[in-house]
Computed example of a mutant assay.
Amino acid sequence: MPNDESTARLKRPDLSVEENNYLLMLGDRIRDLRAQRGMTRKMLAQQSGVSERYLAQLETGHGNISIILLRQIAQGLGFPLVDLVREEPEQSPELTLLLQYLSRYPPKTHEWARRLLQGELESSGRAARRQRVAFIGLRGAGKTTLGKMLAEHLGVPFMELAKVIEHEAGAELSEIFSLYGQSAYRRYERRGLESAVTNNEAFVLVAGGSIVSEPANFDLLLSSCFTIWLRASPEEHMSRVMAQGDYRPMKGNQEAMDDLKRILAGRTAMYSKADAVIDTSGKSLDDTFTELLEVLAR
């Protein structure tokens, strides 16, 4: 007898195999993006105004048939579906051709092209970028503790991007999310980062773990700061957060651990774009700080 998950993902008899596979792919994509944002299905339902029940159907390949019809229209026009639903202004012909050109090559070529362009555009500002150190990673990796130690060692300001955002918005993060939603938070996140970079030649910054979910903001961080990913095992992330007095992860412990692993897996590819990676698992604070100084001295 099939289990609940396999039953939920049974294919719809009214659609072709290819259409069923597309809906399953779409559901997997939404679930992966939700994990990158660090959002539960309930949180997404609240932010989007879409019921949890519909989201569950969508993530298991039972999305509305309208998406299939829209996809057919896109295919008839000879354009990718994303071009039909893009909300931003139409991109320049040069960017369109560049994206089309890059799409013919494997992902490793995309990384090479990004670094080539970044190097060309920022060669004059490379020394200035190294004066600004930014930490990324999930909660419990040691960003704040190591950040304060490094700022004191270097004699530069220590900043937490979350507090900069609250200053820019004139409200606490919880209020920003509840009153204005995810998109407003991302706008304030960019303004806060731009403000920090514009007004400080040197600093140590702790960025939110989810900044990698917004490519434009993460790209600004990478191009403006020497970025370090502080990595730890999911188990250490969980135990450190609880050691700080936050016992919320204890609620539904296995489910919380599964969510944590999914978030980490969803963000690893972007976290890996940092200039350096330091694994803090099983290391003392002093040993990790010594490694950090060695990384900066290279």
Rank of each mutant, 00 (worst) to 15 (best):
S233I: 03
Y105Q: 13
M159C: 00
D286Q: 12
A171F: 00
P215D: 10
R9N: 08
P106C: 08
G282I: 01
R41K: 13
L70V: 08
T40W: 08
S48G: 11
V295T: 10
E194M: 06
L26V: 09
D287E: 11
N21C: 09
S223A: 15
L24R: 03
S195E: 04
A202I: 04
T145D: 07
E291Y: 01
S272M: 06
A202C: 09
L285H: 10
M149T: 05
P234Y: 03
G61W: 00
Y188W: 09
R186N: 08
R298Q: 12
A134N: 02
Y185N: 02
R186P: 07
R114T: 03
G38E: 09
P234C: 08
V85G: 06
L10D: 11
D286C: 03
R104Q: 15
A151C: 10
R104K: 13
E294G: 14
D258C: 02
G137V: 02
S213Y: 03
I30H: 05
G140M: 03
L97D: 11
R129Y: 05
L285R: 14
I136F: 03
E94Q: 12
H237M: 00
R53M: 11
E189S: 01
L205E: 03
S66W: 10
T96K: 14
E172Q: 09
G125E: 14
D287K: 07
E255Q: 13
P157A: 00
Q244D: 15
Q46I: 13
Y180C: 04
S178I: 07
H153S: 13
V133N: 01
R29M: 12
R262V: 04
Q57D: 15
H110K: 10
A184F: 04
L44A: 11
K143D: 00
D275P: 04
E214S: 14
L23R: 00
G119Y: 06
G147Q: 01
A243V: 06
D219H: 11
L193Y: 00
D279E: 03
S224P: 03
T145G: 03
Q131K: 14
E87T: 15
G155V: 08
G140E: 06
L58P: 07
E87I: 12
Y22P: 04
T145S: 10
A151M: 08
C225N: 03
Q254C: 06
K11H: 12
S284C: 05
F177N: 03
N253K: 15
S183F: 11
H62A: 04
T198D: 09
A74F: 05
I211R: 00
M43T: 12
L55D: 07
D279G: 07
Q182A: 10
N64H: 12
G125L: 13
R29W: 10
G266M: 07
Q118S: 14
V277G: 01
A269G: 11
M149G: 02
V82N: 14
S284L: 01
F289C: 02
A202G: 07
V133Y: 01
S210Y: 02
V164G: 01
S92N: 08
S174P: 00
